[in-house]
Every structure is written in structure tokens, then in C-alpha cells.
């Protein structure tokens, strides 16, 4: 179970405050060693991502990661971030963007930052929720 919020022209901080207010949650934000934010006193997890003017926020009852990215192709990064099997499946910008948001959402789920190399995330071995929103893809991992 999760709830996804998509908002335009609002900072991550403001969107989180708005959603917490809506859910009637008053709490303090704390961070892990890699700056992943958590609520101090509630067993409710959240994660935030933004791209261009859009901010996305996911709320869940367990650890969760989210990423949003505009549909794009960056051929230069393929060898750096893809496994051999992933590489074979990426033909279009849509394929690339879906792969990228999956990897990012996984790393954000782990809450370990970029130390955990994206090549170590095999997107073919995990289940992600993927949503297309306008010309963006959103991936959610952990729920």
C-alpha cells in the first residue's frame, strides 16, 4: 500500500509539510547517515524526488524509494550503469528512462546514496511500480 503525490512548482519540503498536514501527522524529520529523511516518531515512510518543475512524494507503511525523470536517452552512461542484460534491452529513450528511474528508486529505497553503484542494481531482478506521467517516468520500489 502506498500513496503517490505529484505536484508542480512546489519544493520537496513544502509538499511534504502539506501532505503531513493533510494526514494529520505532526512529527520531526530526521536523517540517516546518507541524508535519507524519516519521520522520527511515526512508522510511516516517505521518499521524494523532483525533476524540472515536478515533485513526487510517496508515502508507505514500509521503506520506500521513488524517482522521477523526464524521458531522455543518455548513451554515454549506458555502460557505466547497466548490467549486460539490461544493456541489451535498452533501445529507446523510454527504455532508458524506465531503467534509470528503477535504479534510482532502488538506491533511494536503500538510503545509501550514490556510494552504492547503479550498476550493482539489477533492475531485472526486482519488481518496481512504474508510472508514466506526461513526458516523465516515475518508479517506486519497496511497496
Amino acid at each position: 500500500m502506498y500513496k503517490l503525490y505529484i505536484a508542480k512548482n512546489i519544493s520537496s519540503h513544502d509538499l511534504l509539510n502539506k501532505v503531513l498536514l493533510e494526514l494529520n501527522i505532526k512529527d520531526e524529520i530526521i536523517y540517516n547517515a546518507y541524508k535519507k529523511p524519516y519521520l522520527k516518531n511515526n512508522k510511516i515512510y516517505f521518499n521524494i524526488s523532483h525533476c524540472d518543475n515536478y515533485t513526487v512524494l510517496v508515502i508507505a507503511k514500509k521503506e520506500v524509494g521513488i524517482d522521477i525523470e523526464r524521458i531522455t536517452m543518455r548513451k554515454n552512461v549506458l555502460d557505466r550503469v547497466c548490467t549486460k542484460n539490461e544493456r541489451k534491452l535498452i533501445k529507446t529513450a523510454e527504455d532508458f528512462t524506465k531503467m534509470w528511474v528503477k535504479k534510482e528508486s532502488y538506491v533511494k529505497y536503500l538510503g545509501v546514496g550514490c556510494v552504492y553503484g547503479l550498476k550493482n542494481v539489477d533492475t531485472l531482478k526486482h519488481n518496481f511500480i512504474i508510472k508514466k506521467f506526461k513526458n516523465y517516468y516515475i518508479a517506486i520500489y519497496g511497496v
Partner: peptide, 14 residues
């Protein structure tokens, strides 16, 4: 954003 940074890193490596 992270994708830009990885793009840059790949360019430097190459």
C-alpha cells in the same frame, strides 16, 4: 541532478 552528474562522470572517464 544525478543523471547529469553520472553523464559528466562518464564523459570524464572516456
Amino acid at each position: 541532478e544525478s543523471l547529469d552528474i553520472v553523464d559528466l562522470v562518464a564523459a570524464f572517464e572516456k
